[in-house]
Every structure is written in C-alpha cells, then in structure tokens.
Design a protein around this nucleic acid. Structure first.
Lengths: 189, 189
DNA sequence: ACTGCTTTTAGTACCTAGTCATAATTAAAC
DNA sequence: GTTTAATTATGACTAGGTACTAAAAGCAGT
C-alpha cells in the first residue's frame, strides 16, 4: 500500500533533506505515485525544485566557508555581564551539537559555553584558563536551552581568578565547573 | 577591442574559477562575443556546463558535510586507536580556533580534542563524560600541531572509566586532563 | 447509490541552460 | 586574393522543471 498524503509528505521532507539531489521522477518511483503528485507535494511544502536545491547547497556552503569564521569568540549569547562579578549566557542546543544516535549534547559544547563565559566575565583584555574541574550533572538534549551563570569567587593578588559556572536547563543543574583563570598574557588557554 | 582566442580562453578559466555560477550568456556579454563562441571555448577547455559546475560544488561540500559530521564526532584526526587501551589524535590549530588578539588557542578546542578522544577510546557504542579535571599547561598558538594521547587508566565494575589525556606540541605538554566517563546511556555529557 | 469533496493523474504549453551538428559569415595569415 | 582559422547563426533535441487545465479515482456522509 502507498502512504496517504500526510505521511508521504512527512517522509518526503526527510527524504529530500537526506538526499537533496533527487529528481521528482525518482521520488515518484520511490513513493509509488505520479510525478505530478510529487510536484503538488513540493509546492504545498514549499520545497524548491532540484536545481534550486542543488544551487542552495552550493551557495550556502560557499558562504558558510567564508562566513562561519567569526561568531564564536563567545559561545552562547551573553545576556548579563557584570565585569569581575558575574555573567549569564544562554545557548540553545542545535542539531550539530548532539550525538546523532541519542540526541545528547556532546560535552565539549557545554564546556565551551562555560569556559568562554568565564573568559568574558573577567575585567581584562584577555583571560586564559589555567585549570578547571568540571562535572556534567545531567544530559542535555537537542532543542534545550542552556543558561550558564558565572560567578567570580576569588581574585588573588597574582591575578589568578577563580570562576564558578553553573549551567541550567529550566532551573535544573546540568553542568558545573570551577575555572582557574589567569589574566592577560601569563599562562595558558 | 575584443581579446583574441588564446587570451580569452585564459581569462575564461579564471572567470569561471572565480565565480562558477555564471551562465554562458553572461560570459558572452562579459567577453563581448557570442554565446556559441563561449560554448566552443568551454568545449576546447573541457569546462562543464553551469549546472554540472554547480552540482560538483554542491556534492563536494555535501560530502564534506556528511563526512565531517562523523568526522566531527571526533575533533582532530585519530591516528592510532586501541579500544579500551589508548588512542592518539592530532589537530592542527587553525585561524578559527585562536583568539584573534594574540593567536592563542581558546581552551575549549583543546578540551574538545581531549574529550572526544576520551569518548572514542572507549569500546562502547557511546560514552559520556561525567566529570573532568583538566589543566592547561602551556599556551598553544596558531599553526601548532597538537598531539593528544589518551590512556584508559581504570575501568570500574559499574562501567565508570577513567581516561587520562595528555596533549603535546613537539613533546611539550600543553594540556592534561583526567576524564571520568560513563559507558552507554548512564549519565551525562 | 448518489452527491460532494479531496486527492491523484494526465496533458499541454512554456522555461532555462544547456548539447550536438551543420552551415554561413567574418577575420587573419600567407 | 585565396585559404585557413575563428566566430556566429540556425535548428533540433534534452533534463528538469513551472503553470495551468481537466479528467479520473477515492472516500465519506446521507
């Protein structure tokens, strides 16, 4: 039996996402319907024709290659910042940040958000991480919004600064870390 | 004056390389010759038609994307892997990975390399990081090649696995970390 | 069983950005 | 000034569509 419209259209979206270089004819064969049906579906779903899909893949990545370089000096969006005191950033977990098998966020993204927040909160041209103790408290899934809160705990006379970062999804702790930061061009990150 | 054949063909190659999404008609206008001449030129020079050029850009980059997701599942290139024993990966620091001000690698990239190596070394469908203690020993600059070595230190009966990762630039320790990993769908990363 | 509605097919004309082949025109070389 | 090379024109055909019209099939309620 062939699928009915609704399901076919859902599958169509997937199919095209998965392999955008497929013609209407091939799709028609795949779904065992006429070419016209596929075209109606594409129209309803606002899916452009093959050539435009190909072109957009080509141009997107043309642009991405040029573009995707800045943007991530800080991971996540900083929404509050009190230098040398505290800072808050939010980050929504995207598809690219999760393991495809189970949709769980790969740890280094949570670390990156926290670490870059720890860098940002310090009132200095540049701070570098010297050491960190971190703990992943609960799994974070795709689509969830992670709120990271950094607090400067201690500034030693040599500049070493201890920053605590706690990350939450809806008030639930998902990550915590204690970062030992050096100011300016002293040590490492 | 219009160029003569030889020169026009040299420029044609450049032009198409520079902006591969240009039609024969636009090229004809650009060089002030007929469309047919452009087509003859393309034939002589073995340059495929617009649609094939677009498609090849798209497939190239689509493959890269498809490849670079699983390849991105591990940060850096794994060059040695002994499951549940040890693993080595290398990563060359690119422009995008450093602070533009001083060319020092942002910490989360070193962490990401180490963390994903710790995930990879574990002989399980999927491992998640529970906790980590890490230390940035020396600054890493753009262009340097970081060699991360992971060693499985301890596997407890509940599956908790401790992995040590040491990262080097030319035999000099730049990063070290102790990762507490859970196997499969137990806790967090 | 018949009506009314949605869904699916079919068919036509037209489009873009080409290919391939042939012929005619123009420019350059000797 | 003729020959050769380069350019342009012309017509037929292609893939992968759009846009539109119209017929047929499927089904749901009465």
């Amino acid at each position: 039996m062939r699928f009915k419209k609704e399901q076919r259209q859902r599958l169509l979206i997937e199919k095209i996402e998965e392999s955008p270089f497929i013609t209407d004819e091939e799709l028609a064969e795949y779904f065992n319907v006429s070419v016209q049906t596929i075209r109606l579906d594409r129209m309803e779903l606002q899916i452009p024709e093959l050539r435009k899909r190909i072109k957009s893949v080509a141009t997107n990545q043309w642009n991405e290659k040029v573009k995707s370089l800045p943007l991530d000096e800080v991971i996540g969006d900083i929404i509050d910042l009190q230098l040398d005191e505290r800072a808050i950033s939010i980050m929504k977990i995207q598809r690219e940040q999760v393991f495809s098998r189970n949709q769980i966020t790969r740890g280094h993204h949570l670390f990156a958000q926290a670490n870059s927040l720890a860098v940002a909160v310090i009132d200095e041209e540049l701070a570098l991480t010297k050491k960190a103790e971190i703990s992943f408290e609960r799994q974070v899934k795709r689509g969830e919004q992670v709120v990271a809160k950094a607090e400067v705990k201690e500034v030693q006379q040599d500049g070493l600064t201890i920053v605590h970062v706690h990350s939450y999804v809806k008030n639930e702790l998902v990550f915590s870390g204690k970062f030992y930061m050096y100011r300016s061009n002293k040590k490492e990150s």
